[in-house]
């Protein structure tokens, strides 16, 4: 293992790049956590759902809309799509074994992935993001406007979501439905709709993550596949049922992976993904409930 030539400026740039990646991981991880809390299952289609909505954005922009005009439309479509998916295909298996729900989401992933190829064709294409790629000087460190924009959008979204969950009645109902279905029904919360609403929110978070990374990665049906894995890692790192954990886990993972890739020659670009995998495995073996997760007691 050799250590590449080190400068503080570059180190700061790497940190920024890591935070930018981490912000995207965090958004998708948060989506996974929201669904996990309400459905107790992992949505393996989260990445495909995000890519699909990003394709919708691409189409709208192709029809002459600007990014920021398309953005809210895409979010609405994502929300409605998420709610519809929960109501139609998740609901019938909701009370079944976790494996069944997981496989249904895998089926959904296949379906959406294929649908994207059918509608838009395979292969990757450039996606014009809302932020310019030129760099500005922040305290002597050149940082791209795009990085700042992505981080800002992600943070604003997470902040809004936190306020929503904490201070609105609907947010409280969502949390209650995720924590205890029976008691929620007794106080008049429509639990079924709350779960669907959770899927809608998750789809929105995924859509934002997708639209943020598309300018960097190019758009293709498999765009989110590896990002989904990082998001899994981030969610597990933070503890699957902790929204705060998902955000912190995402940022930590983004920075750690970027730094390891840059400064540990053996890892480089190729082994980033396996390294992330190893990282979650280690976390799970040492702290099975992640860094922020609740300890689940199993009674015998």
């Amino acid at each position: 293992m050799y250590i590449a030539a080190f400068t503080w400026t570059e180190f700061a740039q790497q940190i920024t790049a890591g935070v930018r990646q981490g912000a995207v991981f965090a958004g998708l991880a948060l989506a996974l956590v929201i669904i996990y809390r309400s459905t107790r299952a992992i949505n393996f289609a989260q990445g495909e759902m995000a890519t699909f909505t990003t394709f919708v954005c691409w189409s709208l922009m192709n029809h002459g809309l600007s990014f920021w005009a398309a953005f809210p439309i895409v979010l609405v479509i994502a929300f409605v799509g998420g709610v519809t998916i929960e109501r139609t295909i998740i609901r019938p298996v909701e009370n079944g074994p976790v494996i069944t729900i997981v496989i249904v989401t895998l089926g959904l992933a296949l379906l959406l992935n294929g649908l994207m190829s059918v509608i838009w064709g395979g292969g990757n294409r450039p996606f014009n993001g809302p932020f310019s790629t030129r760099t500005i000087d922040v305290g002597g460190v050149p940082i791209s406007v795009q990085d700042i924009g992505i981080v800002a959008v992600s943070f604003v979204l997470v902040g809004l979501l936190a306020l929503f969950f904490r201070f609105t009645k609907l947010g409280l109902g969502l949390r209650a439905a995720a924590l205890n279905r029976d008691s929620s029904e007794l106080v008049g919360v429509r639990v079924g709709w709350m779960l669907a609403f959770g899927w809608g929110l998750a789809a929105v978070l995924g859509a934002v993550a997708g639209m943020m990374v598309a300018p960097i990665l190019f758009l293709d049906p498999n765009m989110m596949q590896t990002i989904l894995l990082y998001a899994f890692a981030a969610a597990v790192l933070g503890g699957l049922d902790s929204p705060v954990g998902a955000v912190v886990g995402g940022l930590l993972l983004g920075v750690a992976i970027t730094l390891l890739g840059r400064y540990v020659g053996f890892i480089g670009d190729t082994l980033k993904l396996p390294t992330a995998l190893l990282l979650i495995l280690l976390v799970l073996l040492v702290k099975p409930n992640g860094l922020f997760g609740r300890v689940a007691v199993r009674r015998v």
């Binding site: 009645k169 409280l172 109902g173 209650a176 008049g188 919360v189």
Partner: peptide, 13 residues
């Protein structure tokens, strides 16, 4: 949830 949030849920409807 906190005591206050539990009370808020009581008035959910």
């Amino acid at each position: 949830l906190s005591v206050w949030e539990n009370l808020r849920l009581g008035a959910y409807t």
